[in-house]
Nucleic acid binder design. Structure first.
Lengths: 204, 204
DNA sequence: CCTTGCTTGTGAATGTGAACGCAAGCACGA
DNA sequence: TCGTGCTTGCGTTCACATTCACAAGCAAGG
């Protein structure tokens, strides 16, 4: 990896490339050109080449990108070559759906703990995890967990985030419909499905 | 609304503004300045002013933006001033969570139909809707539905989308982990939670 | 060993969005 | 009625991202 500035937009696209190369591997393809890949992903060939070239020269001129080794390279860049543990906060319907979503495992993520504040949920089992009491969130400090997924109501989110900030959490995937205030050392990605849907009628 | 080009990024942010102004209304605020709003949303004041000014002069100099009327304006711009019906395809865990997510209603969305291909799910009730057979998807043509939410496995998505394209669907919120090929008249927003989480370890 | 065809990698140019700074102008008080 | 303070609206500037176009270079075949 060289030391020039890599665009944020490029980083956002890297998981998409990783997913594509992983799929190509299961199809037993051993190489793919930028134009073929671009068609699959609905984007332009030069953009793919530029994105990948920020991290080095992965491809072979005249041939394309070797599927297996490029997948490994991207995994390394995104630090997904080791299992990343994540804590899920919120064991409602959405939380339960997330806990059992196989897509996380395919990126090497491991939902290693689930917390909730509802006594009727604490102690129940979701997937392989037993739901724990949110009051004991600080037990994650000693469990090598640095990612959190928030699937709780917006008005409950900020206090939970303040707690997570004291627990070595470095990244948060926030599914609550609100902005979170966090120290700069924590990276937050917020997704509200209703908001995403909210843009569509404008284009109709 | 004037006829100059409005940035896509601005459109993406409009639902966020709408949500903020709606919340301010429930707090009985009658106006807010761009700097106060910026702090709440974690963004810069000039950006808010620029975004809103694309659609006209909503604010009052020296005072700020009137909460109630600005909310109405944005609702009109996004065409959320009328109830927008949406069809949900996929009645699995994620689909069920979406069907009962109250956030959609707060933007004026109405999940008006649910489809699935699993015979054990067809006929069961989720929220107010009875799950229908995906084979009968074309019945939505006569039901004034122009939005679709896809919560199905990636390998099943493309055929469903082809079917939706023949049913007057104009916008799709795709929660499947794949790129969808659609005619240009259809706007697609794809969200894969695993992919979003996939960027976070890079920044740790 | 050389030639041909194809695809990558990359600087330069173009396009797009964000930030800045200030003039315009409303509200309020004297 | 006029002056003051505050905040919007917007032209300009700047930064970032995408696209373009072409040289570099590998592979395969004669």
């Amino acid at each position: 990896m060289n030391y020039q500035k890599i665009p944020d937009e490029t980083i956002k696209r890297m998981p998409m490339y990783l997913r594509a190369f992983s799929m190509l591997k299961t199809e037993n393809r051993d190489s793919i050109s930028s134009s073929q890949l671009a068609e699959r992903l609905g984007m332009s060939p030069p953009q793919i080449r530029k994105d990948l070239s920020y991290f080095g020269a992965f491809g072979t001129r005249g041939v394309g990108y070797p599927v297996a080794s490029t997948a490994d390279q991207i995994r390394g860049i995104l630090k997904l070559d080791v299992t990343q543990k994540a804590v899920l906060v919120g064991a409602g319907r959405l939380g339960a759906a997330i806990a059992e979503y196989p897509g996380f495992a395919s990126f090497g993520f491991d939902i290693a703990a689930i917390f909730d504040n509802d006594p009727s949920k604490i102690g129940t089992k979701i997937g392989k995890n037993v739901v724990e009491d949110i009051a004991k969130i600080d037990t994650i400090k000693s469990r090598d967990i640095h990612l959190a997924i928030l699937a709780i109501p917006a008005d409950a989110a900020q206090p939970v985030v303040d707690g997570l900030a004291d627990c070595c959490i470095k990244g948060i995937l926030n599914l609550s419909a609100c902005h979170l205030a966090v120290p700069k050392s924590i990276k937050v990605v917020t997704i509200d499905l209703a908001m995403e849907l909210g843009t569509l009628p404008y284009y109709m």
